[in-house]
Simulated assay, not measured.
Amino acid sequence: MKLDNTVSAVITGGASGLGAATARALAAKGVKVALFDLQKDKGEAVAAEIGGVFCEVNVTSDESVIAGFEKARAAHGQERILVCCAGTGAAMKTASRSKQDGSIKHYPADAFNWLIQINLVGTFRCVALSAAGMMTLEPQNEDGERGAIVNTASVAGEDGQMGQVAYAASKAGVIGMTLPIARDLMSEGIRVNTILPGIFETPLMLGAPQQVKDALAASVPFPKRLGKPEEYAGLALTMIENSYFNGEDVRLDGAIRMAPR
């Protein structure tokens, strides 16, 4: 796909971290960018910086996502690019025993479902609505390409750690739907790929104690550091620009394989 000022993009989770880095990288190519996020102040600041538009969107709500696409398309036209970075995490064992009094508790199904709704269903909701819009576009090139979608999973989707059952399940779901969606959309010229980030310098990670970040960095085979959001953005742009890149789930992790804990 050719990236220039005739192309528009929507980035979910675009107010910070991986999403903001991708928004900046696309805007640097001339792409018109809309940011979906719940962080209004940060989202508006990034949008002002790149000349984009901010849409306050909750990816767990049909109405909110539809309204976000309507606002983005009113400003920039139908998007050819969707990058889904919106997501969250939580840690809890499936069942556990208290070291203090021996009491036993289990992971509540409602809490499990909350994470699935954000990370998995929220991603699918945005993909389905965006793909339907992309189908109205004229193909951009001789391949008949109409659009490109990049989703965000996690290495936890393949080697989830203790306490990551809901998070790992949600990200495994994103991985699992990559190829079927690519096949669903192949006759419409819409490509779908997924990135599986390892341990990255996201807002959540930056708030951790330095000794924790140092230990995590040391666990990466090479390079021994946390991933940079700009490196995620670089792979996302490769997936978007390379028209033969389709139906793939790609780890971006410095060769790390997560230990049980």
Rank of each mutant, 00 (worst) to 15 (best):
N5P: 04
S8P: 06
V10C: 06
G14Q: 08
L18H: 07
L18C: 06
L26R: 03
G30T: 08
V33P: 05
A34T: 10
L35D: 02
F36T: 05
L38E: 04
D41N: 11
K42V: 08
G43K: 03
A45D: 08
V46W: 11
A47I: 11
E49R: 01
G51I: 04
V53Q: 05
E56G: 08
V57I: 13
T60E: 12
S61R: 10
D62M: 11
V65F: 13
V65N: 09
F69N: 00
H76T: 08
R80Y: 13
L82H: 03
L82A: 02
V83W: 01
A86N: 02
M92N: 09
K93G: 04
A95P: 00
S96P: 00
S96W: 08
R97S: 09
R97Y: 13
S98T: 04
S103E: 02
K105P: 00
P108R: 00
A109F: 13
A109P: 01
D110G: 03
A111Q: 12
L115Q: 03
L115F: 02
I116P: 00
Q117W: 01
N119V: 02
V121Y: 05
F124G: 03
S130C: 14
L137K: 06
L137Q: 03
G144L: 02
A148V: 10
I149Q: 02
I149T: 00
V155A: 09
E158T: 15
D159G: 00
G160C: 06
M162W: 12
G163M: 11
G163S: 10
V165D: 07
A166Q: 10
Y167V: 10
Y167K: 05
A169R: 07
S170T: 04
A172W: 09
I175P: 04
M177P: 01
T178E: 01
L179E: 14
I181M: 15
A182H: 11
G189S: 13
I190Y: 06
N193Y: 09
T194I: 02
T202S: 14
T202C: 10
L206V: 09
L206S: 10
P209S: 11
P209Q: 12
Q210G: 12
Q211Y: 15
K213I: 15
A217Y: 06
F222L: 13
G227Y: 03
K228N: 12
P229D: 13
E231G: 12
N242G: 06
F245T: 10
F245P: 10
N246F: 06
D249H: 00
L252I: 15
D253V: 13
A259K: 11
P260G: 11
